[in-house]
Amino acid sequence: MSVVFEQIFQVGFLAAIIRIATPLAFATLGEMFSERAGVLNLGIEGIMLLSAMAGFTAASLSGNLWLGVLVAVLVGALMGALHALFTVALGLSQHVCGIGVTLFSSGLAYFLYRLIFGQQSVPPSIDGFKPVPIPLLSDIPILGPAVFSQFTLVYLAIIAIPLAAFVLYRTPWGLSVRMVGENPRAADSAGVSVIATRFQAVILGGALMGLAGAFLTMAQFNAFTFGVVSGRGWVAIALVVFGRWDPWRSAGAALLFAFVDALQLRMQASGLGHIPYEAFLMLPFIFTIVAMAFMSRNAVAPSALLKPFRREER
């Protein structure tokens, strides 16, 4: 009997980690692409919120979840384009623009949500994505039910990680992204359009942030609330640094954070926790700040991060 209980406990716990990690993985990969091209996107928190809201609304009105995902991705890409317009095309300061994009997108998300759904005591919910077990793989003990009986979006995240690594390290476009993030002047001399490449990377990043938002309102919570993102964008900012701007490490960092988060939820639920759960939630931020102090000596951040590129300035 206790063996069975233990089994369920572990499977449920593993499954929870995967579910918590999925939106973080999307968001972290999105922020990573943007930063590798030299553009810090602090708009992430607001972009995730607006995408989450737009995707939820589209799914709720049309009854089609995948249409919701598409809308969320498009809205994310659009807000990425907006951030790129300000920071890449106009060369405005990235951190202030990012805060502007977050304030603007969050405000718009709250406004439109209230306009469309009005004030309701119980937030409207949708019939969200259902787990889709993969034949054969889902029969593997423990790993099967935990990893291979998940939402399609989870599988998409699992595929997105090696795909992002491949795109970044093995394709000409990925090389361009790394070049414009490290040495835009040299990239420009080599005939790479710094402006175009940065635009593409920030837009792709925004689309991935949109996927993260879509997962929150259409798979994880099946409803939109004003606190649905609640700092996950800031977590992604930390995870990118902690993952040293690398897709594999960043995704690993997301998994690690998800483990800590799942652990704290479990401790809270069991009532065993003598340690306040907030201590766990603080960890990724504290770890990242400490890690930054150690990393700065090796200078692993993209060299041109935060620096606008103007061709005429030499």
């Binding site: 810090l40 900012i237 603080m282």
Partner: peptide, 25 residues
């Protein structure tokens, strides 16, 4: 340590927020 102040000051907001939550909860 030449740590970027944009990111570190932003991340500290979350640390302080959770510290506040830990106190009031």
């Amino acid at each position: 340590f030449k740590v970027d102040d944009v990111v570190s000051s932003l991340l500290l907001n979350s640390v302080i927020y959770y510290a506040l939550m830990a106190l009031i909860e």
